[in-house]
Simulated assay, not measured.
Amino acid sequence: MKKDEIIRFCNSLGLDTLGFIKCREFTELKDFFYERKEKGLENEFEEKDVLKRINPFNYMEEGKTIISIAFPYLHDVNYFDNGFSVYTRGTDYHRVVKSYLSKVCEFIEGIGGKALAFVDSNFLPERHIAYLAGIGFIGKNNLIITKKYGSYVFLGEIITDLEIETNERNYKEIQNFKECGNCELCYKACPSKAINPYKKNSNICVSYLTQKKDLDDKHMKLLKGRVFGCDSCQNSCPYNEKIEFSKIEEFYPHDFMNKENSIQLINASTKEFKDSFFKTSCGWRGKNVLKRNALIKINNDKGDISIVKTDSPYLKDYVDRLLNSNKI
């Protein structure tokens, strides 16, 4: 069977958490996406056309099956708290995951199928797909939580024209959070209360705020030393206590990403940035946003940002705002 062949090939690459669902329109998400749009909960990273978000046939008209694959990224090392989420420490996951998916696509093409790979830069509802495919469950923290690796996984998808046997989970069970039970530790840990028992608002998630181009003063205070990403809800989750670690070498943290590096980041030239931070999973956001967040971190740690010299009007504005807020 082609399904068994694909699973064996993925296993040979070290990928052991994958599932298959029928390629179809996810009409069950339509009302949810429209409600988010009406409530102003969408952000600039989301596809605005709801009908595109629920229709994978926009990518492959003859698609029959979607394969969801989890890529564990947490290694068995001591992650130094420098303000960077642990997912950012290794080589850019967009490139790493795409390279693995490309190999799987080549294999599928070799057994007579057509295949397209996707990682992050698309409008597929990847967590929904992963849940349906049995990769894991969606927790109260809105993350996919796998049995083997907890929530420390990236997701990738492949659409193929091969008809493959599937065993899709019931999407109606997602919001029951039955695996979480009465646990609300992630709600208590969330620094901005973006997740809570009543409402989820990704627009005030601190991880999102570290990626946002422009920050209000009140949002700068929420960062509290975070330079990119936020692991608070993951750190508090019981499902992340006893997990297996990643064997994907590319996700092992770079030395410069596992030490205090705010000053290095702020002083980095364009070339130095491209040779270091740009190669990580947060480099895509550009050096000025990362430098801004490093400024906020240094200021939060009671460091002296008045000595920071910059030719960037964007960064100078944040230096001035931070210095003014210190006087209040």
Rank of each mutant, 00 (worst) to 15 (best):
E25V: 11
I195R: 00
H75W: 05
K212Q: 10
E25F: 01
Y34R: 10
S276D: 14
I204Q: 12
D320L: 14
C183K: 02
E47C: 01
K148G: 05
I328R: 15
T280P: 09
N170Q: 03
M1D: 01
K218R: 08
Y131K: 12
K178N: 13
K64H: 07
D255Q: 11
L101T: 07
K64W: 03
V289N: 01
I296D: 08
I296Q: 04
S68A: 15
L13A: 10
T270S: 15
D216H: 06
Y171M: 08
K37S: 14
F9C: 11
P253A: 07
K48T: 08
D216V: 07
F118V: 00
V289S: 04
E25W: 00
F154C: 12
E5Q: 15
Y198L: 08
F245N: 11
E38T: 02
I204F: 12
L29A: 03
D255M: 01
G83C: 01
Q175E: 14
K213T: 07
G63T: 10
R127G: 08
K309D: 15
S281T: 10
I159F: 09
K287V: 12
L155R: 04
K218V: 07
K242L: 11
I69W: 06
C180W: 05
I66K: 10
K147N: 10
D81C: 00
Q234M: 13
F80T: 01
D255I: 07
R226P: 02
A70T: 00
Y152H: 10
H128M: 06
K22L: 00
I69F: 02
N300Y: 15
F278Y: 14
M60Y: 02
K140E: 08
N267G: 13
G229P: 11
N201D: 15
L155Q: 03
S281K: 14
T146D: 07
I144N: 11
R95V: 09
R95L: 13
C190D: 03
E62A: 03
V119Q: 09
V206I: 06
N324T: 09
G229H: 01
K316D: 12
F57S: 06
S312P: 00
F177W: 09
E47R: 03
F251E: 08
L51C: 03
K200M: 13
M257R: 04
V86P: 06
H75D: 01
S312T: 02
S312C: 02
I6W: 00
N196T: 14
I243E: 07
T91R: 14
K309C: 12
F26N: 01
Y59V: 00
E250Y: 05
I164D: 13
K52L: 14
F107A: 05
N201S: 00
Y314S: 04
R285I: 10
Y239D: 11
F251K: 11
R285K: 13
A133R: 09
S202R: 11
K291V: 10
L322M: 15
T160I: 06
F123H: 06
I111L: 01
